[in-house]
Design a protein around this nucleic acid. Structure first.
Lengths: 206, 206, 206, 206
DNA sequence: ATATAACCGAGACGGTACGTCCAGTCTTAAT
DNA sequence: ATTAAGACTGGACGTACCGTCTCGGTTATAT
């Protein structure tokens, strides 16, 4: 470090935004490069060019850093589409969700944090309150909009139906680690639409 | 160490079964008591009354110990029932699965290992090959038996349908951490039976 | 850890002198109490009330600690006397040297390190450069002063003569482990003086 | 090790001489190749193609093995010459001693054991009783023979004089690690002969 | 302008656990 | 009776991070 460039050394206005960004980026990079175990507070600080204490001043641990890193990325990556028709929105959103979870860095961070939630229930509670509940609201948006538009009956249990739509996706991502093709999500969406439409018709002939 | 009691000190027959059992039990107990972070190789050895090297001789790390502990426990905890009728077997199995996953020590070990599979892909591959594939076969048993009995059409995609039945359960356990009541699993089973029966036209006229 | 006492926890001034002293003292004590095999890095750290990493931060191993402990002790224990007459200085110094080597804790540390120099040539080279060369200079001081005063002929081979004076002492200490009495060192000194005085012919007529 | 060759697996006739030789050779080799720290009981057993327990059955530790290895080699390497004249025997023996100590594998083993004697006083006592005393007798042989022949006065203190002759050699080997040339040993011998001859003559003219 | 407060870097500290190596003991089956 | 094989307890090794602490320096604001 022989550079003579001017660097931030603190001020009384509050935290250094540059340091904050560098830390989040470093955590993201380390996770992508070396996996969750390769993310350490010391490693984050070193790669961000920041003192370890600076990281600890603002975050309680590496998972807290990753949560912040995730929050920045995820809202934009996972905005449900809104074409005005459930038959378009639902398959599109399921495909988008499957892709993000299984094939992006954001998904990797997400999986790591879901994993940490199993290992550390206290973290899990905070993570769910802070982040996951918001994600569930996003997951429900397509159905809720359809209800508002009258496409779906008002009495439908949106939360339960959403579980059945996204549940298999998370299951494949987290448990079986199988690839999720477009056909898989399309069939999921199609069968759902089929069922809810027939249910309110003259379903059972007997 | 002046005790004269007889203890196992190794012999050419191979490993000590007593040590093996003690290690698995210790790992199980530690996970239940102190969580995943509280399980350490040193802690396992100490609680099992065994030298650390003995644990390392047979397992590569704490997750390997937990996998073995899980394998022993899980086969008996999760035997799918076989009453000969899918309408009985399916709800019973889903309820059993939900209970084991969310409310038993075995479930806690399972969640910890699924979590570790996210953190460590190499472990994940081994864990899935060694254990999860077997578990998926168990999950599919109710439907497969029903197909064999002729209760379900032979052309049904058992794997995909199983995903839709158990996916929401794993999702609730791993992601949302919400309690899963008997009504939840019953509705899952009921809706599935409803759908597959109607799909094949006016199947059972009564 | 609810104590509120003030302790050193590191600062940017560099290392803790208290920790350094505690480590050297602990190493010294352990060697005296339990012998060389009883000196371990873990033991040193534990007895010094210091983290193991702190010892490793500043020393590469137990022998390095002992070298530092020795350097502190030895300069004062082995200051050659300077009465201005070789006939006084030489027997006094040889007796002092024999005593320190064979009957003090400092001597025990010295012997342990000489031993380690046999076992580990790389350590030996460093030890000799760092410490032994200085000790040899001390050993030569009585003769060199005598030459400077004109008591001894300028052409005398001080290094070789010193070898012959101290060599038998080290030999007895390291090899035969026999006690060295005052008569032994006095005869060594006396015979040396006798020889060098006669060598130059009718030297001191007066 | 898939060989099916016949190997010794014990018998009721007593210890295996082949195993004994293999162990001693293995210890010697390991010391020469990897230094004292590289000699371990497990390593000896492995290299000798012998079970660890077999080594422990006959030796108490690696130093005991090395002592046995040394005893076999040393008697022949260090036999004092006997030409019937001290002026020939003494310089020859000193040169031989210096060479063995500083430039042979036997000398390396010897130095390692002298070192261990510093670290472990109990071993030191045994080593000196078992081996070193015999070596000291060998060291004194040239002078004792000269006394018997009348070359030296009967009243001479052979032990003390031997200390002064070999002490500087051991000192250089163990402490300073300087090379010992033939001139060094010759001067040692010459000066000794000079002194003891003049002492009994009309030494001090005054 | 000058202090002062909030932040920054650097890095030493007490700890815990890691995974490895070797010591020395014990048991067994084969010779 | 001795051997090879090898599992066992136990302890130290040297390393990696943890989370805490202290210090000296930087800089905008409040005096």
């Amino acid at each position: 470090m022989t550079d003579t460039e001017r660097r931030h050394h603190g001020n009384r206005h509050g935290r250094s935004e540059a340091a904050r960004q560098a830390v989040l980026q470093a955590a993201d990079d380390l996770l992508a490069e070396k996996g969750f175990a390769g993310v350490t507070m010391e490693g984050i600080a070193a790669r961000a060019g920041v003192a370890k204490q600076t990281v600890y001043r603002w975050w309680s641990g590496k998972t807290a850093v990753l949560v912040d890193a995730l929050v920045e990325d995820l809202a934009e990556d996972l905005t449900p589409p809104d074409h005005g028709r459930l038959a378009l929105d639902l398959p599109a959103y399921l495909a988008q969700l499957a892709h993000v979870l299984s094939a992006t860095d954001t998904g990797a961070v997400f999986k790591a944090l879901i994993a940490q939630a199993q290992h550390d229930p206290a973290f899990g509670a905070g993570f769910r309150a802070r982040y996951l509940d918001e994600q569930r609201r996003r997951d429900r948006l397509p159905l809720e909009r359809a209800v508002a538009r009258g496409e779906l009956p008002a009495g439908i249990d949106v939360a339960a139906e959403t579980d059945r739509l996204v549940g298999p996706l998370y299951y494949r991502v987290l448990v079986t680690d199988e690839p999720i093709g477009r056909d898989y999500t399309d069939r999921l969406a199609h069968d759902f639409l089929d069922r809810v439409l027939h249910e309110r018709g003259p379903a059972a002939p007997g």
